[in-house]
Structure formats: C-alpha cells, structure tokens
Design a protein around this nucleic acid. Sequence first.
RNA 1: GCCCCCAUCGUCCAGUGGCCUAGGACGCCAGCCUUUCAAGCUGGUAACACGGGUUCGAAUCCCGUUGGGGGUGCCA
Length: 458
Amino acid sequence: MAPFVARFSPAPTGFLHVGSARTALFNWLAARNVGGELKLRVEDTNAALYKPEYLDSILGTLEWLGVGFDGDPVFQSQRADMYREAIDGLIASGHAYHCDCTQEDVQARTKGNQTPGYDGYCRDRGLTSGAVRFRVPDAGTTEFDDVVRGHVSFEHAALTDFVIQRGDGSATFFLPNAVDDVDMGVTHVIRGEDLINVTPNVLLLREALGVTERPVFAHLPLLVNDKRKKLSKRRDDVSVESYRDRGYLPEAFANYLAVLGWGPADGVEIRPMREIVELFRLEDVVPSPAFFDVQKLDHFNGEYIRAMTAEEFTARAAPWLGEEVATSAAWQRMAPLVQERVVTLAEAKPMVDFLFGEPVIDEASWEKVMVKGPNAAEVLQRARVAYLECVWDASTLHEVTLAVGEELGMKLGKAQAPIRVAVTGRTVGPPLFESLEVLGREQTLARIDRALGRLGSG
RNA sequence: GCCCCCAUCGUCCAGUGGCCUAGGACGCCAGCCUUUCAAGCUGGUAACACGGGUUCGAAUCCCGUUGGGGGUGCCA
C-alpha cells in the first residue's frame, strides 16, 4: 500500500471553528480509510497572534469529536532554526531577497497598476537586512492536479513576490509549510479551498528548496452561511466548543460534518463513524460550497439522542441537569419521556424544572388556556375533587381526568390544558399524568388551588 | 481591477451519455396517531442557471454568458 501521511495544521488564534473541525475530520477520515497516518502540526509562527489557551481548547474539542493524531505534534515555533537555514539557502541561491519596503511604500508605487501586490522593487537592490521575499519566476505557470478540483493552473505573472521572513526574523506561513510538509513526510495535503491560492507559492518554494516530489492536494469546499459567505467568526455561530456546551453530541456533530461536502453512495446519512471511515473516499468529495445548516444538525442530534438506551441518556444528560436533578427518582421516571422530546441535552433541564421548584407561569399560556379557553375553573375544581382521593399513579390520573372532561363535554386534549398550565406553568411539556405522579398529590393540589385563587374562583 | 474556484429541489447529498416523466435526506405543507409538545407513519411541494455546440441520444462532455464564492497581508 502506498504510504499515506496527512496532517492537520491549526493556527491557535481562536477556538476550533466548524470549518477547521470539518477539515480535521476529513483528514482523519481519509487517513483512516486507507490505514494511513494523521499528524498534528501547530502553526504558531506568529507569536503576536498565538494564544496557548486556544491550543488546549482546540485539542480538547478535537478529542471530543473523536479526531485523533499519530505521533507527536510538531510546533513550528520550535523550528525557527530550520526555517532560517532554509531561508538563508534560498537567499544564497538567488531564490529570495531582502526587502525593506513598508506597506505604504508599496502602495504608493503600485496604485493604479494592473497587477496588485508587491512590485519587486527590492529584487536587485542587494539589501542584507529586512524582510525576505521569495522571487517568483516572471514567466511560466505552476500547475497541479487537485483530487477534488481537477487540474488547476496559475500563471507566475499573476503571483507577487511573497514574504517568507518577517522583519523580526520569524518565518511566515509559506516557508514552514513547505519545509515541514517535506520534513514530516506529508503525502496528502487536505485543507479548505481558501488556501488553494497559496498552493503555487508552496510548490514554488519546494522546487527552490530542491524537493522534486509533490504531495497530493485536495482542497475541500468551504462551509458557508445562509448568505453563501464563508463562515466567519464574527457573524456566524462557528465555535465547535459552543455546540458542545449546548448539548450537541460529538457523534452527531461529527456525523453531520461528514456529510457536508461528501455523501455515501447508498444515501444513508446517519450512521456510525466506523462505517463512514470505510465508505469515505477523498475522490468523492464534492467541489461546491456547503451551507452549515443547524436545522439539519438538530435533526441528526435528535436522532442520536433517541437512539440511546435510557441508561445512556440519563448518564449523558447528567452534566446539564445538576447533581440534585440528575440523581433524583423523579428524573429517573421522567427521563425516557424527555428523551423523546429533546433535540439537545441542554433542553432536558428546562423541560423538567417545574418538578424541582415552583412553576414559572408563562403569561401567554395562562391567557390562552385560563382566560380564553373553555371551562378552566370548572375543570380545575372538578379535577381537584377527583385528585383528592384517587390512586396516585399516571394511569389512574389519566382515567380520572378523562372522566372530568367527559362531565363537561370536553375531550381529554382540552380538559388537560388548564391542569397543565396550573401545574407546570406552560401549555407544552412532558406527558401530564406521569408529571403529576412524580410531583405528588400534595404539590399538585396546592398548585391547582393557587391557580383557582388567581382565577378568583377558589 | 487581477488571479483561482463553484453552478441538480429553499438546504445537504445521489446521478459520472441512454436505467431520469431526475432519487434520498433536512425543511416546509397536509393527513393519521395522540393527554400538550415531540416522536412515529402516510402523502405532497420543490431543482438539472442560461445560450451554443459534440452525439442517434446530455443533468452528465466542450465553449461562452450570467450568477455566486474565495484570494489578492511582514494573517494562516
């Protein structure tokens, strides 16, 4: 089998972005599918932007998603010597040169030019200090075959001499990228399409460094928002960590990401990751951008939640419930009913809150059922009487309430409404009679009395 | 402006010259079920951007147009 070494190379300048997570996942899937390796490289060449706490967060979130790495991570911040040596070599061989132009200098000289960017002003000035730029050939093209995009070609005339070393001596993105891919034995570069324009730069650098072989490139389609714009940290909800905190399951999240830009031939989208690993092929990745659709993510998450055993659900929902609720008998009884109704784990608690404290009366619900609805006071009074003596379990409460409704010519759906609002404060929630059973006779009667009091009929 | 990329239902995928009067999924709509809400079940809505070619035959190949996006940093 041909060797396969992919890498995921985040820049720790923020929390893990859903687009980065998707890139990491596709790298992982491609590697796992062929039994290859996935390495981690931390692109922290820019000391000004790098924040160590972000790296911990990114790594933790990746682990949560199930994306693991082979071997030790490579930190670019620790390889400055290697880069400097390479840069010195490029200068010596005439592939790079020093430049002391400021951004203003360049702008002043190039405004109105056809081709934007740096104009090569310092190419032959023979400077020995300042930033270092790579000398892009004046003519010719750099081409490569991309696994998802096919043949891509760039004319050198359209490329500008890019900076490979800052004035402070640190290397910029391009050079470490080229050097490390070679050094790490990377065979497959799988990354977002926003980096496709940078590919000729890196290829040119590799050639200048005397490297003859090339990695396979696969530029993944961008993840976009509803406006078809690249997902942005400012406008969009893109922190994977925040999805985790809101009760999305890692397996559901990863599964959803896997079908953005790729789809199994049999059309079965929701399936275990081990199956996706088997079916995934880089060649099948689609080239067009994909909308990150939270509604569909919600559907995936709900499916995964409902597929859990009751035990698993209670265990995994616990962190969102708090000790008191999670360990209560009331929750144990209600959990299966809640499991059917939540989309995220975070939704469980508000659904049962009324069992663990005074209900918060939703005024719109009160208005709708108690004021405008039929027979509210009548229902409550009769239910109160019936509930006083009956056996206190869900099925009896169901029968008794049904009877109360019949006395008033109401179907159960209508008759239960005032009771639900009196006891839970809302018109919607988990099944009522199980809720009452758990709440207990005393609390139920007290809440009905309070509602009657407010209605002025108690 | 210049460079690069993309183009099938609202959305995500299937489709790689005839099996397509274009399939699945999410959403949406309707019905069933029903103690509310969900879930579930059934049905429905809805697309090959446009124009030229190539071919006996095109959603599938080629060219152009239009539209959209990405890049254009001493960010990555």
